[in-house]
């Protein structure tokens, strides 16, 4: 009787969410794997043809897919560097003893709250028109021209905007890390006559390693999955030169109507994201044990 009661309560508390969760996440996930073995154009009346692993083997001869994968890697590496350098710099600036640090912190974080889609449009205006006008009036046409029309610069523009969006977010993580460093060590170094750069290089940065690891992996996973900014800033153009992974998958499925093939790409996407994240968890856990 008591057991039955417990089971009833258990069901009452968990079943509503579980039903939603299973129908929104679990079933579509399994269906997704199933679809990836078929050739289908997404139209219900048309037959789904079982092709086994063909979608997966075909991936490696799909030049657009390989280009997109390479672009995503390139974008991610550039973003990792710029976001984290700026994030650490911001954090160091706003943990100084100045009175304006709170205002600065609030302002530097703000871009992160504006949605990626809207942020991309703001920057689209800056790159297409503001840059052009500034270039013409200042004479620095070498820097201020429309980045979005040049295949190489369009990717840099994407890195630029992504950095603008994410640096404040990583700053928050680094602030927590810096505040965790004990004052005694810093004071001791000061008494020993260490300069600002010596303190930074020998004390602050090494002690920040746990925060750096977290931020690196977070940036990695955000950068790898970028979609909204990509869509609104460049739309993948010019000529597919900035079509990153997530946008590529969307276009393959809903743009070209290759539901099976596109879903195989989506499954590969999941595997890559999962491997990266699990590596992060493994490294973070290992470090916690060591410390």
């Amino acid at each position: 009787m008591a057991n039955k009661m417990t089971k009833g309560w258990f069901a009452l508390f968990t079943v509503p969410l579980l039903v939603i969760f299973v129908t929104v996440v679990i079933i579509p996930f399994l269906m997704g794997i199933y679809y990836s073995f078929f050739d289908w154009d997404g139209i219900g009346a048309n037959p789904m043809v079982f092709v086994g692993l063909e979608n997966y083997t075909q991936l490696f001869s799909d030049q657009r897919f390989l280009d997109s994968a390479w672009l995503t890697v390139k974008f991610t590496i550039l973003a990792l560097i710029s976001v984290n350098i700026l994030g650490i710099t911001f954090a160091l600036l706003v943990t100084s003893a100045l009175r304006t640090v709170n205002a600065a912190r609030a302002m530097l974080f703000m871009p992160n709250l504006i949605g990626g889609l809207i942020l991309g449009y703001i920057w689209q205006f800056i790159f297409t028109d503001a840059f052009k006008i500034i270039g013409e009036s200042t004479g620095f046409g070498g820097v201020f021209f429309n980045w979005l029309l040049d295949p190489d610069y369009a990717l840099y523009a994407l890195v630029f905007v992504f950095t603008w969006q994410m640096a404040g977010y990583m700053m928050i993580i680094y602030i927590a890390g810096i505040q965790g460093i004990s004052n005694e060590i810093i004071e001791a170094a000061k008494i020993d006559g260490a300069s600002y750069w010596q303190k930074l290089r020998k004390i602050t940065l090494p002690l920040l390693m746990p925060s750096i690891t977290i931020s690196m992996f977070l940036t990695l996973s955000f950068a790898f999955k970028i979609y909204d900014v990509n869509l609104s800033l460049t739309g993948g153009g010019p000529i597919n030169s900035t079509e990153l992974f997530a946008l590529h998958i969307y276009n393959e499925i809903f743009g070209y109507g290759n539901y099976g093939f596109g879903q195989a790409k989506a499954v590969i996407f999941f595997i890559v994201v999962a491997v990266v994240t699990l590596t992060q968890v493994y490294i973070t856990k290992k470090r916690e044990v060591e410390m």
Partner: peptide, 8 residues
């Protein structure tokens, strides 16, 4: 990732 789930 959302892209893996969206179509199914």
């Amino acid at each position: 990732p959302f892209q893996t789930l969206m179509m199914p």
